[in-house]
Write a protein that binds this DNA or RNA. Structure first.
Lengths: 281, 281
DNA sequence: TGATCTTACGTTTAGCGTAACAATA
DNA sequence: TATTGTTACGCTAAACGTAAGATCA
């Protein structure tokens, strides 16, 4: 029977051209490779090399053997990965969310209910979340609305309300509420990785520019040091004095006040059960 | 790295259902299989079984692993066969002939010239020979005519002339020569494995019936014991007294007097060189 | 009680590395 | 002389089988 280790030595030899270099690359001694090559010829029942006194090269059959060896090693690697991936999927709850805030509640609740499971979450746009859901590459999704599809379980579980934060000196600072059309045209500081919020802002305020910060520290510095308006919500845990000197003004548009839904296929409903009791503070 | 031996133990276990039966099937001890299954779990980095106190079964990951193992073992088997087949092809001269007689000269000559090579010959219809030639599944072909294709080497090397053999009492016994149209309508004894001759006879004598004998002994018995006409040629070595009491009458049609051509791709011309000097006795 | 799987133990052997050798450039 | 491949030798570690133990039907 073929031995994948031996085949790897063969392909390494084919790659390097000499037995010694192959040995070095694989951290084994040259004699070992010599023996393995001899053994491979026994196994294949064919001569694979042309041997000089001091030199060894693949013959035509050897070239075919190397080709087959490569395919086989690659297939073996895939098999290993396939099994590992499947096993991992059994021990992982994958969640695709349209926004970060719901995950702050969902992940701890799930970790508590399923301490042996690994959580894998990602924040993406609404269409991307739907794609994960349809391809079953997530067990659970979080969307800012009901899916309307009866083959999904839809559970409302959290509300998030958007406010704009402006310095006290800002034109809008005296307002007690605003709409997107009031805000349209102003430029905003925005965090990255905020899911559907970003597209929503761009859609609702087409005349505004958004300075998207990838780095949380830099974002906070800019909030403190600039007078650019930014956003917060009822769920945001704005640290310390981050918004000191700023006024929070609720945005009243319905698009700015969303109800999140847990969405999953019926077979994953157990996971939803573990978190649907959650109340926002 | 995966070990194909271990994977085979896995699939055997999957086939038999218990470790002990798998062990027996593979002629190894049960503890060995136990250890191998434990080792496979290490290698895959996943639990593959559900274990009772004295029972072991595949879990979902295990089923996937078995599936992958089967594919891999089958791929390994194919790889082995591919290499062996290629090597064999390097040591085999394959000849497709439209008739048996040319092989009586070609095979000994080639064996003499290439003592380390294995000869593989087969007798088939003219179209089948062409197919072998085009698909390069033979190194050399023997056809009853020139191919007219310039990308083939065509070497005329042998003539065969057909005669009909009838008992002295037969209607045709007095003739010194005949044509197919004279013979059309008579029924004939025929050997099997005579290549293009059979189709040729059927085409030239559509009103005749042919009693094709698969067994050489039975054929000869029928020749001796019946008065059915049969055929022979200048190349045939009709043993002993087989045709005693019969008259040989040459068939004069051009189709009955063929010149055989060695046909091969240019890269196989060396083989043709070894035999093109042959003269018929 | 017989069948099954696991663990423990002792042996064997197969594989490895070091070293020596032969040949080349 | 430095590099390469092969052969010889001795050792180690891995793998195996036997035996014993535990559990179930």
């Amino acid at each position: 029977m073929l031995d994948l280790n031996e085949l790897e030595q063969l392909t390494t030899f084919a790659d390097t051209g000499t037995l010694s270099m192959a040995a070095e690359k694989l951290n084994i001694s040259q004699p070992t490779i010599t023996r393995t090559m001899q053994h491979l010829e026994e196994i294949f029942g064919a001569s694979l090399f042309v041997r000089g006194k001091n030199r060894i090269m693949l013959n035509d059959t050897g070239i075919i053997a190397v080709e087959q060896a490569r395919q086989l090693l690659s297939a073996a690697d895939n098999a290993l990965k396939t099994v590992r991936a499947f096993d991992k999927s059994l021990h992982t709850i994958t969640i695709s969310s349209c926004a970060p805030a719901p995950l702050w509640y969902v992940l701890p609740a799930l970790s508590l209910a399923y301490p042996d499971m690994t959580m894998a979450s990602s924040i993406k746009s609404v269409p991307a979340v739907y794609q994960d859901l349809d391809s079953k590459s997530c067990q659970m999704a979080i969307l800012p609305h009901d899916t309307q599809y009866s083959h999904y379980v839809n559970i409302p579980f959290l509300q998030e309300n958007l406010s704009v934060c402006v310095p006290v000196s800002h034109d809008l600072a005296k307002r007690t509420s605003v709409t997107f059309s009031d805000l349209n045209g102003f430029n905003f500081l925005l965090n990255s990785e905020i899911g559907f919020w970003e597209e929503m802002c761009r859609a609702q305020m087409p005349s505004s520019k958004f300075l998207v910060q990838t780095n949380q520290f830099e974002f906070e510095e800019l909030v403190r040091e600039s007078s650019l308006p930014c956003f917060t919500t009822n769920l945001a845990e704005d640290g310390n004095d981050l918004l000191e000197g700023r006024i929070k003004i609720p945005v009243t548009d319905p698009e700015a006040n969303v109800t999140y839904y847990l969405v999953c296929h019926s077979e994953c409903m157990v996971y939803a059960d573990a978190i649907k009791h959650i109340d926002a503070k």
